[in-house]
Design a protein around this nucleic acid. Structure first.
Lengths: 345, 345
DNA sequence: AAATAAATTGCAAACGATTACATTTTTACA
DNA sequence: TGTAAAAATGTAATCGTTTGCAATTTATTT
């Protein structure tokens, strides 16, 4: 333990022969204080390894400079904490928040069981809340939003839910992915994901739309509703092939992790990718291009998203208007799908 | 914004016709207060959606119930924030901390540039610090430890560095991995990793030891020193094959991510895994078994590790003695390596 | 029923910063 | 040189809890 008791602002004031007010202002670089004094005090602070007591500041100012980030995952079975995509988002949020002078308090929905607004905002643990994922049930999110608390959600911006959402154009992404498969020769494209899940349902909408526009008949046996995990995907594809045979020649997986699970099921049966079955994912996680064959996918720009999220949160903290942001997605064609005929570009 | 001003403990006391002392004690379930009173007050608190002001509590008690978790990664080029393993550790830490009643404040070394002890502990932002990764340079960690601040590091427990370390037996892991390769017929095993990096250097030691014990000659051209990323691995293996040819029949990759990069390089050249080149990784990330062929690896039990880390931190917070913990690792043989002859078990 | 012990509750002083307002010092100007 | 304005600093209240100690109420014992 530290030998000497922690230095307080008052101690430092005594050392500098000024009042606590002056020290406080000097440390906060308040121009009210003569520059020379400021420098003197800052030097003294550094010399004595002084640091402000954040608890005291927060109590006095009613500001924490902390943002709570909640990973909204129902439980271990659903899209899990191990999904690199989610964690990439957290990393990017961390960076964006720090840049804006905030710290990141990490939670998941399992932990912050109570009323989020009450716990984090009323409890003065954070100034604002960022929720990652709308999941299948946004009741908690709505409840939080109803408290009119600074809040931004990473989710699907199509869903106008009474709170600010930043997210990709999932519907377009789903359309693009499916269209890419159809355009490169697939006839029977399977959807692998969870149509009940907010973001995934939009991707599913895009899938249906692409099929409809291609004047193909929709085959409901080709919609496989699963948890957003690679193991669920692996099992679903395996089971489908066993029970119904290879009734498809393309897979649109609603996330890269899901795609990886599906690929494993295919490879085990020596089904050629992309010639027998083409497959495309969603997210563009780092691993996508490391697969063999490299996984085609729809890229979401998480770094840009994180910046938008923080910007929208800051707006709310400043009392300004904030609005949902829909981000473009981008087709990244790799080896797991065939190339469309050149006449189509 | 909230219409009514935030309720304080004093307000609640007035409503309940008792003193603030009583309310405070009741809410903290202090048995000094008659159970009946406690229940009455708790009900009232719930009814009015009351929540304690954490800033005030922290100021008064000098305890935050927060632990800072620092991802100690030098920069983007080194083992990056996208490594699922690191993030799995964070997830498990989050769970273990919550279980113990702590919240998790996330930082990375790039952000918390200053003196960690000063910023987090003196600044009363957290009660303790957990550092994930010793990286190649533990100067910051040593500096923090010198402050005698509650601190636990995820790293290599062999390095007795004057601070508490929880980590796997990396040296044994490296030995086991290499031995597994040699035992299943490999003659020339390549090491892919960074012998300068704390944990990796121990794995490297194990590698060297296994080779020595097998009475094989050490070939220094088979030690490839790279950043701990899959792209670096991909490039290194590709470059090696181009310049020197396929001079190895086994790879011990110092992490699963590194292994994945190497596998891609092999697959692109249609080099059969495991028959021409067997490969084993380290960590056992979720993806390992989704690879094709499924990746053999050395499993680190991150959930158990997280619990040990938290336990050691709690010990320090309670003023008890804390000690480094070395965790067992486990060989997970999969399809990327051949089976050892049965007479060897 | 009085006296003592035990169980509850209240009083008021912290915790360490920030900031409106008051005061002092310095500068500018006539 | 005197005075007003501007700049710099200080005073003291405040943020909302927790907790040592005192005071009160209730239970127990003789």
């Amino acid at each position: 333990m530290n030998i000497s008791k922690k230095l307080t602002l008052a101690d430092l004031a005594k050392l500098a022969n000024v009042s606590t007010a002056t020290v406080s202002r000097a440390l906060n670089n308040n121009p009210l204080i003569k520059q020379q004094t400021r420098e003197r005090i800052n030097a003294l602070a550094k010399e004595h390894n002084f640091s402000l007591n954040a608890a005291a500041s927060r109590l006095r100012t009613q500001k924490t400079n902390v943002v709570a980030v909640i990973l909204n995952i129902i439980d271990e079975t659903e899209q899990s904490i191990t999904d690199p995509f989610l964690l990439k988002v957290v990393g990017d949020l961390n960076k964006a928040l720090n840049q804006a002078g905030f710290e990141l308090l990490l939670s998941n929905s399992a932990m912050a069981r109570d009323d989020w607004a009450r716990y984090f905002i009323d409890g003065r643990r954070a100034d604002g809340i960022i929720v990652v994922g709308q999941a299948k049930n946004d009741a908690k999110v709505r409840q939080t939003a109803a408290r009119h608390v600074p809040l931004v959600v990473w989710g699907d911006p199509h869903s106008s839910a009474g709170y600010v959402i930043v997210g990709s154009n999932n519907q377009l992404g789903g359309f693009t992915a499916t269209h890419h498969l159809l355009n490169s020769g697939c006839q029977k494209v399977l959807f692998l994901g969870d149509p009940e899940h907010a973001e995934m349902s939009e991707r599913y909408r895009g899938y249906r739309q692409a099929i409809a526009e291609a004047k193909l008949e929709y085959d409901e046996t080709l919609t496989l509703s699963i948890d957003i995990t690679s193991t669920a995907a692996y099992e679903a594809i395996s089971a489908h092939i066993i029970s119904r045979g290879l009734t498809f020649d393309g897979i649109f997986a609603c996330s890269d992790m899901v795609a990886l699970g599906a690929m494993k099921a295919l490879k085990e049966r020596y089904i050629n990718i992309p010639n027998e079955v083409a497959i495309i994912g969603f997210d563009d996680i780092a691993l996508a291009e490391l697969m063999h064959p490299a996984l085609s996918t729809i890229k979401q720009d998480t770094a840009a998203a994180a910046e938008h999220i923080v910007a929208q949160l800051l707006a709310q903290l400043n009392g300004d208007a904030a609005e949902s942001v829909m981000m473009d997605v981008k087709l990244i064609p790799r080896m797991s799908t065939r190339q469309p005929p050149t006449e189509y570009r």
